[in-house]
Simulated assay, not measured.
Amino acid sequence: MSEWQGRTAVVTGGGRGFGKAFGTALAMEGAHAVLVDIDGSEAEAAAEEIRAAGGWALGLAGDVTDEARMAEVMARAADAQGGIDLLINNAGLHSDEYGQPITKLGLAKMRRLFDVNVMGVVCCTLAAAPHMQGRAGASIVNISSSAAHMGGSPYGDSKLAVAGLTITFARELGPLGIRVNAISPGLMLTETIRNELPPATMARVKAMQLIDGDGAEEDIVEAMLYLASRRARFVTGEVLRVTGGMAAGV
């Protein structure tokens, strides 16, 4: 029997992309997948797909920057099995727009970027932690980015903050029995990336990889399944780079 049988996983940004893939993989392993997205119709559509495939899923609308709503969402998620076993902080702003220089992006968009990508992680973690405390194997997986290790963009700076929060929360939540780790994806040729990222940018990034190949959504799903599993019971405060070697460094 899968270790995920009957356990509850909350995935923010769960309506599409990595979030939907995370929820689907966990539900197929027997988890109760709660997909949270600012677009409630997308979250419910993704959940319906999972249910149609034989898994358990619930789609909920919610803005990760809304403290009151996230408290409601986590309480609702905890109802299924008396608590939350896994939180994946995946929601974030990540289009090419947020790779622009700060002088072009402007203050209002900078505030929005950090509110979602950074404070959203804080908001959801604080809301979920009371429902995770004391749950055997409880863990949090944050989604950072290879951009965090490269420097030079507001988006990367926001994801560098996520990497920092991963260590801070690992320290603070460790005594409660909650592990906290992060994944830094490199260039993953998802549908969203193909639609949003200019071909020249994709070519430049691929030229920096040490592995000659295309990253895929499944690579990030597998990394998540490892970090959230019992196999990683002694792993916390870490950022796993899944970049084909693009962001290799010490």
Rank of each mutant, 00 (worst) to 15 (best):
Leu187Gly: 03
Thr168Leu: 14
Gly137Ile: 14
Ala216Gly: 00
His149Met: 04
Arg233Cys: 04
Gly156Phe: 00
Arg233Lys: 14
Gln5Leu: 13
Cys124Gly: 09
Asn181Arg: 13
Glu218Thr: 12
Ala203Lys: 11
Met110Glu: 10
Asp37Lys: 00
Ala170His: 12
Asp115Trp: 04
Ala247Leu: 04
Gly245Val: 10
Ala228Gly: 05
Ile38Trp: 04
Gln81Asn: 02
Gly13Leu: 01
Glu196Gln: 15
Val116Leu: 00
Ala232Thr: 11
Val242Met: 00
Gly19Asp: 03
Ile193Arg: 14
Asp212Val: 13
Gly215Tyr: 04
Met202Tyr: 10
Val116Trp: 04
Gly156Glu: 00
Phe22Trp: 08
Ala33Ser: 15
Ser95Ala: 05
Asp37Trp: 03
Arg241Ala: 14
Gly54Tyr: 08
Asp219Ser: 10
Ala161Cys: 10
Asp214Ala: 13
Asp96Arg: 11
Leu197Phe: 05
Ser153Phe: 00
Pro130Cys: 09
Ala247Gly: 11
Ala161Trp: 06
Ala223Arg: 07
Met132Lys: 08
Arg194Gly: 12
Asn181Pro: 12
Ala27Val: 05
Ala75Asn: 06
Val73Tyr: 07
Ala200His: 12
Ile140Tyr: 04
Ala77Gly: 07
Pro130Ser: 07
Arg233Ala: 13
Lys159His: 05
Ser144Gln: 07
Asp39Gln: 11
Ile178Met: 02
Asp219His: 14
Asp85Glu: 09
Ser184Arg: 01
Ala21Gln: 05
Ile193Asp: 06
Leu210Thr: 08
Gly134Asp: 02
Gly174Lys: 10
Asp66Cys: 01
Gly55Met: 06
Leu126Asp: 13
Leu189Thr: 03
Met119Pro: 07
Lys104Val: 15
Ala57Asn: 07
His149Ile: 00
Arg233Trp: 12
Asp39Ile: 08
Ser139Ala: 15
